[in-house]
Design a protein around this nucleic acid. Structure first.
Lengths: 112, 112
DNA sequence: TGACATACATCGATGAACGAGGTATAGTGG
DNA sequence: CCACTATACCTCGTTCATCGATGTATGTCA
């Protein structure tokens, strides 16, 4: 399991990146993150929904209640243009941090 | 500048990694992080010293007041054996998170 | 009918960075 | 010699975000 801090730092880039694959909803987003991370990212409801609401407030994503094939109501989220821009920034920041650490871990090839 | 969350997530691995290069002290650690990150990691005193104290309490580092060549007193920190182990864990966690994101950003070669 | 997975949400406790404030010494330029 | 800057440590209140608990429903399967 990732540390509290790593969960916090990866939450936004992860959510935005998953939504860049196509629209999705809360529960599925949590599952996708879990699957991609080999069970290491286990978002609690208590953090996931507030984060989604914050992203929506920032207009990085939009939501729409829609009936799923199962007959059940779900709140589908979709990236906005601003969301795509925000993702690029998150990505750049992450890669910069990664590069910083890589210089210490792998002094020779700090290029990845 | 890194986001609050990225600062938080990278602080421990960064500190432990820098100390793995050899002993150092608070002020120098902050400068080294700043330099490695191209001015992007600007630790405030208000976070740096409490983190160091926490790491010491966890016995991942030890400290020693010593007079520097400058004639000035400094508190030098050094990695413990547990600290080295903790660094390996931090590293593994970071790389796992990185790998998770890379799958979304670069579906083909998610190997770095 | 009961258990479980799905699906959303809020809220109080906890944990951590940030900014402000404090103390003190060494070096530099006027 | 004095002012300023960089160095060097520290603490504390505010702010912000996750975590765990709790609540409400619905669909599915035995």
């Amino acid at each position: 399991m990732f540390s509290r801090e790593l969960i916090a730092a990866s939450a936004r880039p992860l959510l935005l990146s998953i939504l860049a694959e196509g629209e999705s909803y809360g529960y599925a987003l949590a599952q996708r993150a879990r699957q991609l991370s080999q069970e290491q990212v286990k978002w609690t409801d208590g953090m996931l929904y507030p984060v989604l609401h914050r992203l929506e407030e920032e207009e990085l994503i939009t939501s729409e209640w829609r009936e799923a094939e199962t007959g059940r109501e779900r709140k589908y989220y979709r990236l906005t243009r601003d969301g795509r821009r925000a993702l690029e920034k998150e990505k750049a920041q992450w890669l910069a941090a990664h590069h910083t650490l890589l210089q210490l871990w792998n002094p020779k090839l700090a290029l990845t």
